[in-house]
């Protein structure tokens, strides 16, 4: 079918046109369709018995979000999580902030009362998945190879591999990277950005997209505060410049200092979701 006027072309393999194309079909010929053999404006009462080849420039308006496929899949994941009463968290940070240690500690302390499952994302290796497996909860590893982030399709496939319980928490540990994962919705309920006090306090200013798209900021390794120059108040101030709704929890996954606040947040959010 000719995308411009809707006439039938016998050479056409497809007769289905995407809905987003229909609204943009321009019958006024304002889009360089002037070499078309039959220049009717909007009268369609004639038949097209003549042969009509598409060997001319045609402009097709698309107006489609580049990430629409990811976003559709993310919504599908979100629907699945909602139906099964799963609280899904997307944990993002730079490498070495302590994501896996936070996960290990959390699972160890809470898994008696709450069911957990974990998706680990790394470029390579099974190291993190092995650490989580040792805690006894279901886990799958996604190795992204050359990829720098997880996307909704990877989560969709990983979820099929995992036997996720109803009324549980799914932790998705994204690839350690404060840039790329910011753009990709996985279908999570909340995005949690983790920063450790051994990093620069100006991380929120350097990587604003990640802090802007997160719901909670966990500041880890606070047991090291006496030994490093890290001004927590400044970090908060910088992060709030980028995201006025961001919440903060300061903790040390190693010593357990402040970890109750994280657990309370998890319980509160899972009660909301679950």
């Amino acid at each position: 079918m000719c995308d411009t006027c809707g006439c039938n072309d016998s050479n056409s393999e497809y007769t289905i046109i995407k809905p987003e194309d229909i609204g943009n079909r321009n019958d006024s010929n304002a889009h360089g369709h002037d070499s078309h053999e039959h220049k009717h404006m909007d009268e369609h009462d004639h038949t097209h018995a003549h042969n009509h080849s598409h060997d001319h420039n045609r402009k097709i308006e698309i107006e489609q979000d580049v990430l629409y496929k990811n976003n559709l899949l993310a919504e599908r994941n979100r629907g699945y999580f909602q139906a099964k009463n799963i609280l899904a968290l997307n944990l993002v940070s730079s490498p070495g902030s302590g994501k896996t240690t936070i996960l290990e500690k959390t699972i160890k302390d809470l898994s008696k009362n709450i069911a957990f499952s974990v998706i680990e994302g790394d470029q390579q290796s099974m190291n993190d998945a092995s650490r989580i497996k040792a805690t006894g909860v279901p886990v799958v590893q996604i190795n992204t190879g050359f990829g720098c982030h997880l996307d909704a399709e990877m989560i969709n496939s990983a979820v099929k591999e995992l036997k996720i319980n109803d009324n549980s928490i799914l932790m998705i540990e994204n690839v350690g990277n404060l840039v790329c994962p910011a753009l990709f919705d996985l279908g999570e309920n909340f995005r949690v950005v983790i920063i450790s006090v051994t990093e620069g306090e100006d991380k929120p200013l350097k990587y604003p997209y990640m802090f802007q798209s997160s719901n909670l900021c966990v500041i880890n390794k606070i047991d090291l505060l006496p030994y490093v120059e890290f001004d927590i108040d400044k970090t908060r101030e910088y992060a709030l410049r980028v995201n006025h709704h961001l919440q903060f929890i300061e903790l040390s996954a190693k010593t357990g200092q402040g970890i109750d606040k994280w657990y309370n947040w998890l319980k509160k959010m899972s009660n909301k979701t679950i």
Binding site: M1, D3, D9, N11, S12, E13, Y14, I16, I17, K18, D21, H54, R58, I60, I62, Q64, V66, L67, Y68, K69, N70, G147, C148, H149, D151, V179, C180, L183, F184
Partner: peptide, 24 residues
Amino acid sequence: MHEFSIALNIVDIASKTATDASAT
């Protein structure tokens, strides 16, 4: 380098639209 994923998405969207419109 998430731009590569973005680039692949652009290629997919454009190719699909072109194929649906029987473009060569």
